[in-house]
């Protein structure tokens, strides 16, 4: 297939600027059984994340007597791609992604509160269009907060990279396939630490540093949406059909 120009007059195929994100929606608390959950629509990506825990750690040989073990499982649905039907369950790529995501949460989850337990994070890509591991991690971070797991920060991220010789953020699948370098990045806004970093392709050091700067900047929007999704669950709402609300006494609300 002949490659189209990815950037024309500073605009990309879908009209975005180089550092613009695709439309992003996040909703917390979407499943009933799981302790915490979140659903993310990022461009055409649709990812569902769920958390169970802290709970008894089985198999017992995984148990750590001093802190909770964080386990992550990233998988893609067989119907997630516009292209061919895929197979269910994990494969080598998803196993690697599960590992690097786990390492992010091992950093921020305050696991010492829950020795001998397991915190299980499940991420399912229901529809994929480039940048799925970052979308999955975005959802997982919200699901962990939704489950009440204590963390140092809600991790956010953006995949950055190089297309048509320029550094840009947030690639769709087409840009992914024909770009020159793909750099998923996850970070803690609060501490400025990079917690997930992978890269392929060829870059100069300057290009890399520029990419990181863009990642820090662009991920701020992601962070805002994650926080909003969580707080929205506690916006003043009353169960319907019971009694009307009376004005508050003694407490003032600040949102």
């Amino acid at each position: 297939m002949e490659k189209m120009q990815l950037i024309v007059n500073g605009k990309r195929m879908d009209g975005r600027g180089l550092t613009d994100l695709r439309p992003l929606k996040i909703k917390a608390g979407v499943l009933n059984k799981a302790d915490g959950s979140a659903y993310v629509e990022w461009g055409n990506n649709k990812v569902l994340a769920a958390v169970y825990g802290p709970r008894e750690c089985i198999p017992r040989h995984d148990v750590n007597p001093y802190h909770a073990v964080v386990r992550c499982r990233y998988t893609m649905a067989p119907f997630c791609s516009m292209e061919e039907h895929g197979r269910s369950g994990p494969n080598r790529r998803s196993t690697e992604i599960s590992k690097v995501i786990r390492e992010v949460f091992e950093n921020v989850v305050l696991a010492e509160h829950f020795p001998k337990t397991a915190i299980d994070v499940y991420m399912e890509v229901l529809q994929s269009d480039g940048g799925t591991r970052i979308a999955a991690l975005t959802a997982a971070a919200v699901a962990l907060a939704d489950a009440g797991i204590p963390m140092k920060d809600i991790v956010c991220g953006v995949a950055v990279g190089k297309i048509d010789g320029q550094i840009a953020a947030d690639f769709g699948k087409y840009e992914d396939n024909f770009g020159e370098s793909d750099i998923p990045v996850a970070l803690s806004q609060r501490t400025g630490e990079v917690l997930l970093l992978q890269m392929d392709g060829l870059l100069t050091k300057d290009e890399l540093m520029k990419a990181l700067d863009i990642a820090f900047e662009a991920s701020k929007q992601v962070s805002e949406l994650q926080i909003r999704a969580l707080k929205e669950r506690y916006a003043e709402k009353e169960a319907k059909g019971i009694a009307p609300a009376r004005p508050a006494e003694g407490a003032q609300w600040q949102q």
């Binding site: 609060r190 926080i227 969580l230 003694g250 407490a251 003032q252």
Partner: peptide, 26 residues
């Protein structure tokens, strides 16, 4: 006594510019 100011907070959100120890705060 008197009215309290309360708000919903998330992990990593700043509560105060001074040390104010509380369970689940760091």
């Amino acid at each position: 006594p008197g009215p309290h100011i309360t708000r919903v907070v998330v992990p990593g959100e700043k509560l105060a510019d001074t040390p104010r120890p509380a369970p689940f705060a760091f």
